[in-house]
Structure formats: structure tokens, C-alpha cells
Design a protein around this nucleic acid. Sequence first.
DNA 1: CGATGTGTTGACCGGGTTCAAACAATGTGG
DNA 2: CCACATTGTTTGAACCCGGTCAACACATCG
Lengths: 271, 271
Amino acid sequence: MPRAVKWETLHGARYDTRSRDFTALTPCSAGLQPRTGMVPALPQSFWRESLTLIEQHLPFGRRKLCAQDRVYRCGDPFDTLYLISSGLFKIVNTAPDGREQAAGLYFKGDWLGFDGIPTGSHGCSAVAMDLGEVWTIRYDALLRVSANVPMVMRVLLAAMSAQLAHNRDTMLNMGSLRADARVADFLLQWAQALAERGLRTDQIRLYMTRAEIGSYLRMTMESVSRALSRMARCGVIEFNEAGRRDIRIPDLAALTDFIQSSTELETSPVQ
Amino acid sequence: MPRAVKWETLHGARYDTRSRDFTALTPCSAGLQPRTGMVPALPQSFWRESLTLIEQHLPFGRRKLCAQDRVYRCGDPFDTLYLISSGLFKIVNTAPDGREQAAGLYFKGDWLGFDGIPTGSHGCSAVAMDLGEVWTIRYDALLRVSANVPMVMRVLLAAMSAQLAHNRDTMLNMGSLRADARVADFLLQWAQALAERGLRTDQIRLYMTRAEIGSYLRMTMESVSRALSRMARCGVIEFNEAGRRDIRIPDLAALTDFIQSSTELETSPVQ
DNA sequence: CGATGTGTTGACCGGGTTCAAACAATGTGG
DNA sequence: CCACATTGTTTGAACCCGGTCAACACATCG
């Protein structure tokens, strides 16, 4: 069965194999709010702004990638930023001994490559997790255009700030949520990312192994597996028939309840 | 004994009570490198760039703060950014139930307030931990000037990217270091921040309670206390006579060794 | 068929949280 | 000045979550 059909079944979206993009068939279920995030969710149109703005005002290249392809590697010299036009990407931090840890997930409309700006070379790698496409935008060109088109600068700064805020919330979650809740929150954030982009949120395909999820959530694959099993037993999620990477979320509210019921760590009051 | 004198003793710096700034008496011990950071340390002059550039090109206000004063609060509308001209600040994330968690520490030359850019209102609070001063810079004015002075935009983007990279490394550390190592790494990073600003690194005054440190490192105050006690027993650090918040670090190399000897968590290889 | 990669489950153990008690530093009011 | 309260710090003891190790199921691929 071709992948495109699977996508359609899974996310209720039409997958165009030529452009490697998917468009929603059903209006997304809006109103999702992050459980722990202090930052209100961005307006749904936000992720689109970067793409349309860049398209209008900047010369850019297109680069298609297959699963496991790297947009850039740790150590590469920095001179261009990348804007995800389709697909799903992760940032991995490569330790000196060669082992890797996932440090972030990025979807359509997100930028990649900021980490190279201050030092001039990339401090981590960006890896495609499926078919995908990025627009390559030279940093100096972007700066020049930003000076003339205020909106470009605004969007760029907003995108960076949003990443900062998102990282901050992620840090808090990882510090204050127990294993089960972390996994549940991970699914919830994934659903939110889909919702913001107009896709169905009740069915999710994880393009990650348990080990990868564990790397991202700072826990072992065994714990991830156990957490998912427990959630399935509680009926919060369901595994699709074959393949344990397709997950149905019957009720998002039940998922958020599950997060809260998985007793959080005490957050000691400060001062 | 006035606070200024204490500062001089502690950090080998002259503290000017009028400007509330300190200037190094002794050239700093350079060459400090982060243990886990994949991002090479910024050049020592980096923190200065923001300050000099803003001073030259932008109108800005000065705002002095005492310990526990808030630069901005969670929920405040966003329209200005803040540049730390002196002092030490922390970012706290206020949970819906009112409890707070420290999410970051910021020193002279660091920017505050980015989190308000995408949403137009602040998602966290910035709190002074001691006497300090920030320069207030209106965001729209900054954007206007950035368009005309490329260097201002470069520095702004570099500062934001540096925060992103720093957050990423912090996340990794918190996920991969054990309690003792986390506390040691915390001290090391503090020393680095002082070193980058030309201050002595062998003596550190923590303007934080154990509970605050624990909040920042995502662990209980008991664990922080135990870790510090262990480090003191090993001779890696020494407490100053009175008051357990003044810490001497006889040998920074010993501190890094201590971090590595505190067995790290296994980082599972990905893919 | 074996080899390999992935996912699940069980048993065990250890580090860090939790709970509790005691002490130190500081301030307050009589 | 002392009694007292408050806050911060230290240390001990018990518990428990999640890491570790191991065994096994299952799929794909050569």
C-alpha cells in the first residue's frame, strides 16, 4: 500500500506526492490548549506566515529530503537558514562520543538552523523523519530583505521567540512531569502541532521508535513502552491493528485528564 | 559591612554603588569551556556588544531594581525588551496554581523579554536577584533602528540564538546528569558567566536559596543540600565561614572532574 | 532459515523524593 | 536583653519511581 494512502487514512489529509505536501480535508478540531504551557497557542495562521512571506519577498532554494537525511550536520559552517515547507524534522545533539539525543521536533512552517547564528557553525544536526522539503534561505540575504521589509523581520523574530518560549515550556514539563505524564504530554503536543496545521488530531502516526521518543523525553525506551501500554489499558489511547506506531486518541480531554491524574512532581514554591 | 565591600571581597571587582555596576580588578581567568555544551563559548567581548551598540544607536530608559523586584510579570502586555546593564536576574514560570519555577538565569549583557514577542504578552516573569539595572528598549523602536543599522539586527538575532542554544544545552544537561553533577554543573556555569564578564571565578556568592537552586535544577532542596555537602566533603568546594551561600571553588578543574566522576546517565544511542 | 531491529513485559536495584526532626540565622516585640 | 516566630539549612530514614538487565514476541530482510 503506497504511503500516500496511509497518510490519507491517518491524518484525514490528501498527500500530494509531487509537492510532498498534505492538505487537510477536514477542518481541524481547534481549541486545543497546552496543558502546562504558559504561552497561549499561536493563532492557527501563524505557521503559514513565514512561508507566504518568504515566498513573496525572498529568493530561496528547495531541498527535498528522505527519512534520515540531514538538513545540516553538527559542525557544518552556518550561512543559511531553513524553513520547513513539508515534513517532520528533529534536532539531534551529537555528544563528543558520537551518541545522539533528540532535542526538538519541528513541523511545517518552523525554522531550522538558528543555532548557527552566534557562532557561525552548527552546534547540532537537523534530521528529516520522513519525506520532507525545506526552503533554503541565505542568512545574509534574509538580513538584507529584513531591513527593507519590516514584516519579514517581525516574522523572523516572532519565530525565534516562539522557539524560545516552546523550549522553556518543554524544559518545565520535563522537569515537573512523571514518566507517564511526559509521554502523554508528548502525544498531546504532537496533536497540537497537527491541529495548528489543520490536520486531524485523533489519529497520530509516530515516525519515531520508542528509543527515539525516549531520547526526546529523557527516559528509556522501556519506560516509554510501559507508559504507552498503561495508557492503552486505561483506554486513553488505542493502537491501530498492525504496527504499534499508529495511535488513535479517542478523546483529547481524556488525555489531558490522564496527564493530570499521573501525579505531577511537587513544584516547590519559590520564595 | 556594606554590600559593596562584600562584592569586592567576593568577586575581586569594584562595585560602584552609584551606577550599580561592577568592574573587574583582575583580568578574568579565561579558557573556561563548558563541559557538556556543544556550542563553543562566545567570545568574551560578546556580552558587551549589545550594550555598546544599543547605547550608540537607540534611545533607551534605565530602570533600577532591588532584589525580588520584577522587571515584568507573567501576563503583562509586551512592548519593550530589556537589556541587563548590571545585576543578576532569573526567569520564573508561574503555574496556574500560583507556584513558581525558575527557568533561567541571566547576567549583564543578556536580553530579557523575548518571550512576549510572538503573543504580545509575557508568558513568564523576570525577577531581580540583587540590586540591578536594566535598559528598557521599546520593541518597535528597536525594529526601526534594526532596519537602518544592520549591526543592531545582527546582534539582536545573535543574542536570541545564543539563548536558544543555551536552553538546548541546559535541557540536555538536565536530562543526562545526575543530581550531584547537575549542581556541580550549575556552579560551573555560574563561574563561566562570571568569567565571560571578567570577574573572579574562584569565589561565588549564590543569591539563591537551596530551594531556588532546586527549582532551577528540577530537584528538591534536600538533594541540593546533600550534593553541596558531598562536594564540600570531597574538597571540590568550600563554604565561607558564616553563611552557606558564599562558596569558594579552589580548583575549577577539580569541579569538572567531579562532574564527570559523578557517573552520568546513559544516553541511549538513537537510530 | 538465521540475523537484525523493534516492541513488550518482568524482576531487581538504586538514586532521589518524601517525610520528619533538629539546628542556625535573623528579626520582632515585650 | 530574652522569648518567640520565621526562614533557611542540614541530616536521617523509608519509600517508590524509573533505570537496568534479561527474556521473549514479532516483523522484515537477506
